[in-house]
């Protein structure tokens, strides 16, 4: 769930049409239109969630965040889809359904799983539906990709975009020799695996 209370506004006098904002927008809500000297970034206010990525990366200070007259909420109710399927998907991604996966919006794994079950097939669509990945824009990409993978979906990064590049390893993928090699150096992978296992064991439904 994300309360949207801001939106991006472009200053046409300052915008050079460099397209950086396009490459970083997590909801694909800003696009450069026009040719040569006429190039200008345009915001789609229907999907912009006011995350500020464009504002922060525009080197020409051409975008600002403005307060919406009326804030709106974007969310997916995890209880509006088959709860067992939500749980199964989360467990397959080795996430507890109630586990928070976006620390800015407080989004839980179950909400993202529900969005996927409702048809979302990319991180961008999931962000538009739930608001996840629109706070810090940094920390929650992997659980989203893990949940998509668990649903059998392998999304492609946006061509030329910098939104995200790919899925990365989890603690379950670390080779045994690596675990052995570094356990005496303070990397407690075995023990952390046991912690995650304990967490997942508390989920009644589902299972791999």
């Amino acid at each position: 769930m994300r309360v949207v209370n801001m939106y991006a506004e472009v200053d046409p006098e300052k915008c050079t049409g460099c397209r950086v904002c396009e490459k970083v927008c997590p909801t694909i809500s800003i696009k450069v239109v026009g040719e040569k000297k006429e190039k200008l970034a345009v915001v789609d206010l229907n999907t912009c969630v006011g995350c500020g990525a464009c504002v922060e990366r525009c080197q020409f200070e051409a975008v600002v965040l403005k307060t919406l007259d009326e804030s709106r909420i974007i969310s997916v109710n995890p209880h509006s889809v088959d709860e067992e399927k939500v749980s199964e998907l989360c467990i397959k991604a080795r996430l507890h359904p109630e586990q928070i996966i976006c620390y800015c919006t407080g989004t839980r794994a179950e909400e993202v799983a529900a969005a996927i079950l409702m048809g979302a097939s990319s991180p961008e669509e999931i962000s538009r539906m739930t608001g996840v990945r629109t706070g810090c824009k940094v920390e929650c990409i992997q659980p989203i990709l893990r949940l998509l993978k668990a649903a059998g979906i392998e999304p492609k990064p946006i061509e030329g975009g910098w939104q995200w590049y790919g899925i990365t390893p989890t603690i379950w993928d670390i080779p045994e020799d690596v675990i052995k090699k570094y356990s005496a150096r303070g990397f407690y992978f075995e023990e952390d695996r046991a912690l995650f296992k304990k967490l997942l064991d508390t989920v009644k439904a589902g299972g791999e």
């Binding site: 995200w164 603690i171 670390i174 992978f189």
Partner: peptide, 13 residues
């Protein structure tokens, strides 16, 4: 991607 791996995939230790 890496920072998310750090904070979501590998565990607290």
């Amino acid at each position: 991607e890496t920072r998310s791996t750090y904070h979501q995939n590998l565990g607290p230790r």
